[in-house]
Amino acid sequence: MPISKESILRISRLARLDLEAGTKFGASENQVEAFVEQMQRIVGYIDILEEADTVGVEPLYSPLQLTAQSRPDVIVQEYTREEILRNAPEQADGFFVVPKVI
């Protein structure tokens, strides 16, 4: 299934990536074009899947055929708030700080 430049840019926004905004940080317009062209070739290759006869085949999403385990549902405190916040780019009063949302 061919994929257009417009859909690639739209999908990128859905993934919270702005390929064109990259141009403001050093990427050139050519790089966006190259990205689109590479994506089209990869999707073109993946289209080989169409040939596979999969009628009636149950999809397999994980190879783990032995039962996955569950653990007791008990609350444990493993880390402190300070430890978790230590990697935050911006924090105040024990909270993560983000731009105004509403």
């Binding site: 994929i3 990128s12 993934a15 919270r16 702005d18 905004a21 590479q38 994506m39 999707v43 731009p99």
Partner: peptide
């Protein structure tokens, strides 16, 4: 805008390519 800027500036081209491909 914060998400988009952080991800677009923080990830290299191959990672962005795979994220876009996977989202597609």
């Amino acid at each position: 805008e914060l998400y988009i800027a952080s991800r677009s500036q923080g990830f290299g081209p191959e990672v962005q390519r795979r994220i876009v491909l996977g989202t597609y």
